[in-house]
Amino acid sequence: MTNTNKLVVKDNALIDASFNLSLIEQRIMLLAIVEARESQKLSPDTPIEVSVSDYIHQFKVDSNNAYALLKDAARTLKRREFSYLDRYKGIEALSTANWVNKVTYVDNNGLIVLYLSHEVISLISKLSEQFTKYYIEQVSDFKSKYSIRLYELIIKWLSVTKTEKYSINDLRSKLGLSVEEYSTMSNFKSNVLDKAISEIN
């Protein structure tokens, strides 16, 4: 699959979700979403393969410690959650779900096998309205996990040409920041926003 065909497609509920994934975990999920789009019958039992060599090539990272880093990230990804706006019996509600049901690391092959959760599958496949798409190449050079998230929040509004206004607390939540992290506005601006904006620009 060429880089020009590696399309990331997410329901806007997932774009607007609150979660805290490391840069490596976000990158693994992006590759998994691209790979999952190729599956004809995607289910929680469908193995989604992400090879370490593809990761190294896509994100242009040093191969020396990539295998160990991805193995650790695959392990922690199993415990990660995200919260998103949902509906229950027609009423707006907040749901929390896991990204994956199971993660397998095939050491000898340098391969991560992900089994996506039902919720993730519903938010990345068979989308007909209210979704955001972009090519993975557009975020491949980002070195900050906040850059990817901010880019997604912005690109969602591409056709409208201006974004909605986010409160600081809402934006911090969507970027995956806890209350203690970069708690002062100056730290948040210099260490999160300015760096992300610089990378996106």
Rank of each mutant, 00 (worst) to 15 (best):
T4D: 12
T4G: 05
V8A: 05
V9W: 12
K10A: 09
A13D: 13
A13N: 15
A17P: 09
S22A: 12
L23Y: 10
Q26Y: 04
R27I: 05
R27M: 07
I28M: 07
M29T: 01
L30F: 06
L30A: 12
A32S: 12
I33K: 11
E38D: 03
E38L: 07
S39P: 01
S39Y: 09
K41W: 04
L42S: 04
S43H: 03
P44E: 01
P47H: 00
V50E: 02
S51V: 08
S53P: 03
D54K: 14
I56S: 10
I56V: 15
F59E: 08
F59R: 04
V61S: 12
D62N: 15
A66Y: 11
A66W: 12
A74I: 02
R75V: 10
T76C: 03
K78W: 06
R79Q: 07
R80P: 03
E81D: 02
D86V: 00
R87N: 00
R87T: 04
I91D: 08
E92A: 14
L94M: 01
L94W: 03
A97M: 05
W99S: 05
N101S: 10
N101V: 00
V103E: 07
T104A: 12
V106W: 04
N108Y: 13
N108H: 11
N108I: 00
N109M: 09
G110S: 09
L114D: 00
L116A: 07
L116G: 06
S117Y: 13
S117P: 02
S117Q: 04
S117N: 04
E119R: 15
V120F: 07
V120K: 07
S122D: 03
L123E: 06
L123T: 05
L123D: 14
I124Q: 09
S125D: 10
L127C: 10
L127A: 05
Q130L: 08
Q130E: 08
F131W: 01
F131N: 08
K133S: 07
Y135P: 00
I136H: 10
V139Q: 09
D141G: 11
K143S: 14
S144K: 05
K145E: 12
K145V: 02
K145M: 00
Y146V: 01
I148R: 04
R149A: 08
R149W: 02
I155H: 15
I155P: 08
K156I: 01
L158M: 06
L158Q: 14
S159E: 13
V160H: 10
V160L: 12
V160R: 07
T161R: 07
T161W: 02
T161C: 10
I168M: 12
I168D: 14
I168A: 15
N169G: 12
N169Y: 08
D170N: 04
D170H: 06
D170L: 05
L171M: 09
K174R: 14
E180A: 10
E180Y: 13
E181Y: 03
E181Q: 15
S183I: 02
S183N: 05
T184D: 09
S186V: 07
N187Y: 13
N187C: 03
V192F: 13
L193K: 02
D194E: 14
K195C: 06
I197C: 15
I197E: 14
S198V: 01
S198Y: 11
